[in-house]
Design a protein around this nucleic acid. Structure first.
Length: 585
RNA sequence: CGGGGCGUAGUGAAGUCAGGUCAUCACGCCAGUUUUGGGAACUGGAAACCCUCGGUUCAAAUCCGAGCGCCCCGACCA
């Protein structure tokens, strides 16, 4: 490919409003352009990188027995209604009506379609196990897309679905994905951490997420450096030290005018935040036919509520922060609220186990400008549920070994779910087993965001000059250009461009009549792993100048060795990535 | 959905507070000349109904209203 013909310009300056390095590098390198919030075009360079990533995913999926197919992007509402997700999922599912006024949706995942297909295709246990996958566009109408290309609304996903006759078979395919994913990320050059995660809307029992650990990540992870425990904060547990309750003191009402926040209560009364019971309110929905119920969550004053944990615990279909009117409606007073004196059944009182085990905590009096001293769970109020609903924090005790947990951020680039029979049952995916009985297909679901993977790589592999992608995903492997006004030197460069092409090296030829500085800068911005320069100076020194994007120094390679040298270096760079894949999976 | 910011040429910005002298600057682009090892120099040129609609005014990029769009923080998010 000739640079003079390449569609997609490099940018000398980053557009305003760009915050992330990955976003800047991909825009400046001429990889991507935004069309609307969270919706991007991928220019030829990015397209080539994405295809390389897709091929890695394809090879690894095929390696574990996957069969590629393509499912629709536009779905009739019916299948989503049958699994209950039409109601369970909020605006993230983009809905619209077709010309016959039928409800339709843009696919955000494909469990429904796979289960429908399984219902017609799978009849006998002899057809199982089975694994299908696709590389296809998804649309998720996120409330707020952000983070440049890390979190887009439209994106390509590799999604695979395992079909099995029993639990053991599904576990085997889950295990196969677990390793295949490690190989994929290793081949692409992205370091990942596997964490236990929440199953969320996918349902099922067990799930893992593949996280690229980075401060810009939107997910929060709890990591134990001592024993290796890692979990998404949504599901992370932590040890709590046994509380010495002390003597239960009598309840005492004190005047606290205008003191509403935990911070100010602690300051006004001169107590530690750990001695305060903090009330947080949510509205839980349990389906379209049931009215929402107020959830009265109590955690210690120095901690926060684990939203997802609370949602799972209460088995709520939806959970959202409550409005003040909704809090008042159950007889509580916002800012001075506590479960003390709240009518039984008016709200779902969920108490963090640490609060339940702590004695004599300060809490609100449900009366404006008053708090209570020495409240005790069980004596002064009855919880409907007691569990660990506080979210993990830096320094909390590891649930496995007790060492201090570290909290870090990560970007979720892949996930794997053990689904079970939720979708098979809803859509009638059944087969006749060896014993002659009809049984539901056991499913698993596995995803990797292709564009997000590229964005994460751009986030990791960049420097002040632009991108520096690993060879396995870089759009071109080498760039060749002449630095000379000498026609013979230029002709020679043109010739070696052909030589490299014939040697199978994916080569970009900067044939422009631009100044050397411009060519170097563009080559760096585009992140081409190898740069070959033929100039009068290099010829005098004995050949072409050869430089790696990741290194500062260049060296002279005799022209007759150029193709060998370049392909040899490429081969070893690729092999190193393959070796790292073999090492993990 | 709450809070904040922004919208002027392909890109980055100035001008807006205090209406007129205003549509400016740099990069990029086009032509020519010179130049060829880290975003070259000079000369000339093209390119923006100042996001949209409405209002105030003799006069609006500037003030007011509504809308649209984008970014950030929070909330939320297989």
């Amino acid at each position: 490919m000739r640079v003079s013909k390449l569609f997609g310009e490099t940018l000398r300056e980053a557009p305003a409003d760009v915050e992330l390095k990955s976003h800047e590098a991909l825009l400046r390198g001429g990889y991507a352009r935004m069309l609307a919030a969270g919706i991007f075009s991928y220019l030829p360079l990015a397209h080539r990188s994405l295809k390389k990533i897709e091929n890695i995913l394809r090879e690894e999926m095929n390696r574990i027995g996957g069969q590629e197919l393509t499912m629709p992007v536009v779905h009739p509402a019916d299948i989503w209604k049958r699994t209950g997700r039409w109601d369970a999922i909020d605006e993230v599912l983009l809905r619209f009506r077709d010309r016959w006024d039928r409800d339709m949706a843009l696919a955000l995942t494909h469990e429904e379609v796979v289960a429908s297909l399984a219902a017609t295709e799978i009849k006998s246990y002899r057809q199982l196990p089975c694994l299908v996958y696709q590389l296809q566009t998804k649309f998720r109408d996120e409330v707020r897309p952000r983070g440049g290309l890390i979190r887009t609304r439209e994106f390509v996903m590799k999604d695979s679905y395992s079909l099995d006759r029993d639990e053991a078979g599904m576990l085997k395919q889950y295990e196969a994905h677990y390793k295949a994913y490690l190989r994929m990320f290793a081949r692409a050059g992205l370091p990942v951490t596997v964490v236990k995660s929440d199953v969320g809307l996918m349902g099922g029992s067990v799930a893992h997420e593949y996280m690229y650990v980075t401060p810009i990540g939107e997910d929060t992870l709890a990591i134990c450096d001592a024993c290796g425990y890692v979990a998404n904060a949504e599901v992370a547990k932590f040890r709590v030290e046994p509380i010495d309750g002390g003597e239960l003191q009598p309840l005492e009402k004190v005047s606290t005018p205008g003191v509403t926040s935990i911070e100010s209560v602690a300051g006004f009364l001169g107590v530690e935040k750990t001695k305060i019971a903090k009330a947080v309110f949510f509205m839980a929905g349990f389906g379209p036919d049931t009215p929402e119920k107020l959830v009265f969550a109590i955690v210690r004053g120095d901690m926060d509520v684990n939203f997802t944990g609370l949602k799972n615990l209460t088995k709520a279909a939806t959970l959202r922060p409550a409005h003040e009117e909704e809090i008042v409606a159950v007889g509580a007073v916002a800012g001075f609220a506590s479960p003390v004196g709240i009518k039984k059944g008016a709200a779902l009182v969920v108490v963090d186990e640490l609060v339940a085990r702590s004695a004599n905590l300060v809490c609100g009096a449900n009366e404006k400008d008053f708090h209570l001293l020495n409240s005790n769970c069980g004596r002064d109020y009855e919880p409907d549920m007691t569990a660990q609903i506080a979210i993990v924090y830096e320094g909390a005790g590891c649930p496995e070994c007790g060492a201090a947990l570290r909290v870090a951020n990560g970007v979720e680039v892949g996930n794997i779910f053990q689904l079970g029979t939720k979708y098979s049952n809803a859509l009638g995916a059944q087969f006749v087993d060896e014993d002659g009985e009809m049984k539901p297909v056991i499913m698993g679901s596995y995803g990797i965001g292709v564009g997000r993977l590229l964005a994460c790589l751009a986030e990791k592999y960049n420097d002040e000059f632009g991108l520096a992608l690993p060879v396995s995903v870089a759009p071109f492997e080498a760039l060749i250009t002449a630095v000379s006004k000498n026609a013979e030197t230029k002709a020679l460069t043109e010739k070696y461009y052909e030589v490299l092409n014939e040697a199978g090296v994916e080569t970009l030829f900067d044939d422009r009549d631009a100044s050397p500085g411009v060519k170097f800068a563009d080559c760096d911005l585009r992140g081409i792993p190898m740069r070959i320069i033929i100039s009068d100076r290099s010829l005098k020194a004995g050949g072409a100048e050869f430089k790696l994007r990741t290194e500062k120094e260049s060296r002279i390679v005799p022209l007759e060795n150029l193709a060998n040298e370049v392909s040899g270096t490429l081969r070893s760079m690729k092999q190193a990535l393959l070796d790292s894949a073999d090492a993990v999976g």
